[in-house]
Amino acid sequence: MNIFRFAGDMTHLISILILLLKIYATKSCAGISLKTQELYALVFLTRYLDLFTDYVSLYNTVMKIVFIASSLAIVWCMRRHPLVRRSYDKDLDTFRHQYVVLACFVLALLLNEKFTIQEVFWAFSIYLEAVAILPQLVLLQRSGNVDNLTGQYVLFLGAYRGLYIINWIYRYFTEDHFTRWIACVSGLVQTGLYADFFYYYYLSWKTNTKLKLPA
């Protein structure tokens, strides 16, 4: 475990905690895409199938449980919590994510490290994570403005991906057998998706104006 990966996991955890805090404190999920949260829950559930069968470290196991539990808690809040669900803008969150799920599954059947249930689902979760942010970015564009916490949420998610890419570069140079093409390529695609958001976020921060995404 290197510092980049640990920092990446921490920023990932912080992004989820920001979202949980925002929903819990404001009892509102305005500006948050339920579809993105459902995709993330699916990512964790399909990626951590080896949670009970394959023990890497206590850290890994604890983090996997935390990620699964927190993502399901967010989805549950947005769907079931009487107060929170009222503030969900259903008519803005219209990204047809089922096609994305299907495309990622087909891709995982074709491109995987080994044609086993566990490996296919792992590859599926990697591809799905790359595009899971799309409904959220579409919703932000639709709603025009980005409130602080949601902006910070996407910012920390982007930091997590960026740190993981540095972690892969670091491991590539320090470990002889390290190759993880599926995760690397997919991670690059995912970080690319954030790049435009980062650009507008930086602009709004620099010009000290409210973050406006081009419609």
């Binding site: 023990y55 470290s57 890994n60 566990q118």
Partner: peptide, 10 residues
């Protein structure tokens, strides 16, 4: 499923 081959990242 040897640990070396498993996915040791999150």
């Amino acid at each position: 499923w040897s640990a070396s081959q498993s996915h040791d990242e999150l």
